[in-house]
Amino acid sequence: MRRLRFNVLLAAAIFTAACVTINVYFPAAQAEKAADRIISDVWGQDSAPRDSVPPDEEPQGRLQSPDGPFAPVTMIRLAATGLLDIVVPRAEAQDIEIETPEIRALTGSMSARHQKLKPYYEAGAIGLTADGLLAIRDRNQVPLAERNTLRQLVEAENRDRNDLYRAIAEANDKPEWEDDIRDTFAQRWIDRASEGWWYRTAPGNWQQK
């Protein structure tokens, strides 16, 4: 009897928690797809192909339990999740809105600037950072007469990137997503950078692709 009561309470708790959090769930997979589309537009042929997903990779969100697939707790979780999928569509299935005039303008600006930044990527003068921005890595790779131009290009690019992350969050009526969108873009910029470009995942920790 106690076990039955525990199982019922657990199911109710799972269902209630899911109902409370369903509206604030960040659709990471859709955000990656949106980021890849924009990166392809900005970098063009300099953008590496999207990483393939191994066929045996576990789908996101699959419930697992050390008690086995038919344990009471596992069955309750599966039932609660299945009911939620019927009652409330999963937020992960929603596409990220990136087709607004502001986002298109920012993407166009970044695309036009990329051809000016590309030689500095290739020279190792600049690199990608873990916060989704650019940083000057080695000024010595740039002639003295060009250093001010490089600084202005990096500052302009970072302004556009910051505005882009905010604009995407606002276009989806989820301003609280801005940090998640930034983190998603930060990883995808690095993942899709060309061979030989530099990036860092921590201050001072530069690595070359």
Rank of each mutant, 00 (worst) to 15 (best):
L63N: 09
A48F: 14
I136E: 12
R90L: 12
G132P: 07
M1P: 08
D191W: 10
L150F: 03
G127Y: 11
P203S: 13
G82K: 05
A93D: 15
P49L: 05
E157L: 04
F185K: 03
P175Y: 11
R147S: 03
I126A: 12
I39M: 01
S109E: 11
R90C: 09
P72E: 02
I39P: 05
I39A: 03
A186W: 07
R200V: 11
L63V: 14
N148G: 09
G68P: 02
P119Y: 05
K116L: 13
Q187R: 14
D131F: 03
A125G: 09
E92P: 00
A12P: 01
V87C: 07
A186L: 03
D41G: 05
E195I: 12
I39C: 02
A48V: 13
E178W: 07
R3W: 02
G82V: 00
D173C: 03
T129S: 15
Y25M: 09
Y121N: 12
M75L: 13
E32K: 12
R90A: 13
P59G: 09
D36T: 02
E32I: 08
K33E: 12
G44T: 08
E99N: 15
R200F: 08
M75E: 07
W197F: 14
A125M: 08
A48R: 15
D183K: 14
E146G: 01
N158A: 08
D163N: 13
G82C: 02
D160R: 11
D131C: 05
R139L: 14
Q115R: 15
A71Y: 03
A130R: 11
R5I: 03
R3K: 10
L133F: 03
N23W: 10
I98P: 11
E176C: 01
I39Y: 04
E99K: 06
